[in-house]
Simulated assay, not measured.
Amino acid sequence: MGKHTKQDSNEIYQERASQARTVRKIVLICLSVIFAIILIGLIGGYTYLSNALKPVDAEGEGNDIEVTIPVNTSTTGIATILEEEGLIRNASLFRYYTRYKNESGFQAGTYTLNTEMDTDQLIEQLKDGRVIAEAASTITIPEGLTLNTVTERLAEFTGTSQEEVFEYIDNQDYVTGLIEEYEMLTDEILNEDIHHPLEGYLFPASYQFEDEQPSIEAVIKDMLNQTERVYQNNKTLVENSEYSFHELMTMGSIIEREARESFDRFEIAGVLHNRLNEGMMLQVDPTVAYAQGEHIYMTSYADLDIDSPYNTYRYTGLPPGPIATVREQSFVAAADPNDTEYIYFYARYNGDIIYNEDYDQHLEARNTYRHEWEEAAQSEDTE
């Protein structure tokens, strides 16, 4: 075996030192490049955000734009309205900005805003509530109501009768005109099995009017406009779905009647999609109640005998049309459901939902908690 000399050891040391210096240089260069990229990104992001928050027409003369914010409109809804009216550049950024600044308390009403106003000025005016005119009347339509209940409220609000409201909204010529006017409406609503063409299309929200007793036409118009806005805001979801907007609204109305919590809306939507994909009957109680034309606390075997295309215990697929008013989230859930393996769910009286993949376990859950609905029905009968 040969022996290492001092000269050999020194050469090895020098070589290793040189390699170490090279590695340090490479690491330093990489870190410098990464830092530069981050710095450029931060500067670019800050510049983009700063510009996005500036007035849309900072160097122009500015235009006054009349904007109406309905009662109970979410920050997301307000952002969408402002973007559509050309007052902000990006609705998502407006939403994140208000969340970052913890802004809230936006007031409903009709405002005159200007394109020279920056984001902070718009926020302040919407919080201040300086509107063009105070509302003389307000009507609130909750989610999950059938058109029969909605028309009762509309009749009282407009000073007419329920029969007059139905005569107006069910008129064939009127409905045909609406199909030509609104992109969301198609000939699907003319299906002869549908009880009322506009069932589910009158958006649930609060609406303000300058007249103490507005016309049926004015109220219906505002409600349809709101649903059209939901359609336009989620048009990509509709285009990417295998179902039409009408079918998604139908599914959304079922979800609306079954779920109370946000998570459950998307999970139930996943179950419904699974059952439809498997060619199974949906077997959801709210459709039976709609077919019966009355509120049913607990579906009986006798209720299931009704021969109606809305009876999802008797017919496969979706019913002909929506069965109730639909909030935007329920519609979105129908279009973009959770990816789940569940094909059964049971809704308890307290609102909890029990999901199962196995039918026997589903029956066990139903048998365990069915008494809650029976007790609720008995309590209602004694009142």
Score class of each variant (00 low, 15 high):
residue 189 I to Q: 02
residue 191 N to I: 03
residue 192 E to V: 07
residue 192 E to M: 04
residue 193 D to V: 00
residue 193 D to Q: 11
residue 193 D to C: 02
residue 195 H to C: 07
residue 195 H to D: 10
residue 195 H to K: 15
residue 196 H to V: 09
residue 196 H to Y: 13
residue 197 P to I: 05
residue 197 P to F: 01
residue 197 P to R: 02
residue 197 P to G: 06
residue 197 P to V: 04
residue 198 L to H: 09
residue 199 E to D: 13
residue 199 E to W: 04
residue 199 E to C: 05
residue 199 E to K: 00
residue 200 G to P: 10
residue 200 G to A: 04
residue 200 G to N: 03
residue 201 Y to R: 05
residue 201 Y to G: 07
residue 201 Y to V: 10
residue 201 Y to T: 08
residue 201 Y to F: 15
residue 202 L to I: 08
residue 202 L to S: 09
residue 202 L to A: 08
residue 202 L to F: 12
residue 203 F to R: 00
residue 204 P to H: 11
residue 204 P to Q: 10
residue 205 A to G: 04
residue 205 A to S: 13
residue 205 A to H: 09
residue 205 A to V: 01
residue 206 S to Y: 03
residue 206 S to W: 05
residue 206 S to L: 04
residue 207 Y to W: 05
residue 208 Q to G: 15
residue 208 Q to R: 11
residue 208 Q to N: 12
residue 209 F to V: 01
residue 209 F to K: 00
residue 209 F to L: 01
residue 209 F to M: 03
residue 209 F to G: 00
residue 210 E to W: 01
residue 210 E to M: 07
residue 210 E to F: 07
residue 211 D to F: 00
residue 211 D to M: 01
residue 211 D to Y: 00
residue 212 E to R: 01
residue 212 E to Q: 10
residue 212 E to P: 00
residue 213 Q to K: 09
residue 213 Q to A: 04
residue 214 P to Q: 05
residue 215 S to N: 04
residue 215 S to I: 02
residue 215 S to K: 05
residue 216 I to E: 02
residue 216 I to P: 07
residue 216 I to A: 03
residue 217 E to I: 08
residue 217 E to D: 15
residue 218 A to V: 03
residue 219 V to H: 05
residue 219 V to W: 04
residue 219 V to T: 10
residue 220 I to S: 04
residue 220 I to T: 11
residue 221 K to V: 00
residue 221 K to N: 09
residue 222 D to E: 15
residue 222 D to H: 13
residue 222 D to P: 06
residue 223 M to Q: 11
residue 224 L to K: 00
residue 225 N to L: 08
residue 226 Q to L: 14
residue 226 Q to V: 11
residue 226 Q to C: 11
residue 227 T to H: 13
residue 227 T to A: 14
residue 227 T to W: 05
residue 228 E to Y: 07
residue 228 E to H: 07
residue 228 E to K: 04
residue 229 R to L: 08
residue 229 R to E: 11
residue 230 V to T: 11
residue 230 V to H: 06
residue 231 Y to K: 03
residue 232 Q to L: 14
residue 232 Q to M: 13
residue 232 Q to E: 13
residue 233 N to D: 15
residue 233 N to Y: 10
residue 233 N to R: 15
residue 233 N to S: 15
residue 234 N to M: 11
residue 234 N to Q: 12
residue 234 N to F: 04
residue 235 K to T: 06
residue 235 K to S: 10
residue 235 K to C: 06
residue 236 T to D: 15
residue 236 T to F: 12
residue 236 T to P: 15
residue 237 L to C: 12
residue 237 L to F: 13
residue 237 L to W: 08
residue 238 V to E: 09
residue 238 V to C: 12
residue 238 V to H: 08
residue 239 E to F: 13
residue 239 E to W: 11
residue 239 E to V: 13
residue 240 N to H: 13
residue 240 N to Q: 15
residue 241 S to R: 03
residue 241 S to A: 12
residue 241 S to G: 09
residue 241 S to T: 10
residue 242 E to T: 15
residue 242 E to H: 14
residue 242 E to K: 15
